[in-house]
Nucleic acid binder design. Structure first.
Lengths: 165, 165
DNA sequence: TGGGTTATGTTATATCATATCACGAATCTA
DNA sequence: TAGATTCGTGATATGATATAACATAACCCA
């Protein structure tokens, strides 16, 4: 499978799709999609790009005054375990997963200008890593592939040598 | 180029190689390989596996009582910029680079049992990422590829279904 | 309805990282 | 070689990210 999932142009619809999928999947798996978990997932999706745990916390606190770091981290842990969000290690931040049906090893294209993250799922990359690690006798459990650079839109807009980091 | 660099069996020799290379390269580049930077690089190499900044700090303090977090972070920044150490994003930790001559995009095989990290540099992976990201209009600047799993030794020793995280 | 299990609240703390200002040493330049 | 400039480090404070540990609430189901 090869997919690219930029966020839907109609973002609010995109969010309700994500919440709906999550709810359905949780039911299938007999795990609890509690109001807190739903709300945290919604906050992650509402963010334009990747969002940090403490920013989720700030927003959550507007409506749930007693929220504390563990509140958020536990929800994010759950959402990550179920495959509804992904953690971007190089940013210490989280993004909604665009294809939550299957637990998968995706790759992330992180734009250094606009901050958006696109999730791609390219077999060629996954299996190259798997096979070549295997050549070294290594048994792969998880792959973290995060690619920093310029997304196509930003590249067009500022195609010059603009630098960032 | 395709290499695998497990740490040399004669570790102390491996360390002095690394220090020697770094010294030479710094001279070539006209940057200063100060005693502090040398010592931090040595501490990173002396660590069995990836080492966190604060563990470097603790060890450094044994001999340099006034060391503080910025002391270590600045040295690690320098060493990273020059390509003598790599940061493992998924661990918030640092490893010595086994091939510091060329600044490169490597991949890391992280054993979840013994904690060792092997650096590999496999063109097939690098270019698969580069090309397939390019297909999506993305211009690659940096790749982070960190593979968690079981190294060959640990796989032999505990080839069963031992789980870890 | 009681007892196990799961989820969340609560407090505290661990861990990771940077901002900022001071100051002397190294380097440059005229 | 004097003076300017940059660089490396010291020192203090704080910001940012993440988890431990224990208490309570909600849920489930026999």
């Amino acid at each position: 499978m090869e997919t690219l999932s930029f966020k839907d142009h109609d973002h609010s619809r995109c969010i309700s799709n994500a919440l709906g999928s999550a709810e359905r999947i949780c039911e299938e798996r007999s795990v609890r999609f509690t109001p807190l978990r739903r709300r945290v997932l919604e906050l992650v999706w509402q963010s334009h790009g990747p969002i940090g745990a403490y920013e989720v916390l700030d927003r959550l606190r507007a409506e749930r005054r007693r929220a504390a770091p563990p509140t958020v981290y536990r929800a994010l842990q759950f959402l990550g375990d179920e495959g509804f969000v992904h953690r971007i290690e190089s940013l210490n931040a989280y993004v909604g997963c665009t294809t939550p049906e299957s637990r998968h090893n995706a790759q992330y294209l992180i734009c250094g200008l606009c901050g958006e993250v696109a999730e791609i799922d390219v077999d060629e990359i996954t299996s190259a890593i798997h096979h070549r690690a295997g050549d070294f006798g290594f048994e792969v459990r998880r792959q973290t592939v995060e690619v920093a650079g310029l997304c196509s839109r930003c590249r067009v807009e500022q195609g010059d040598g603009t630098s960032f980091d």
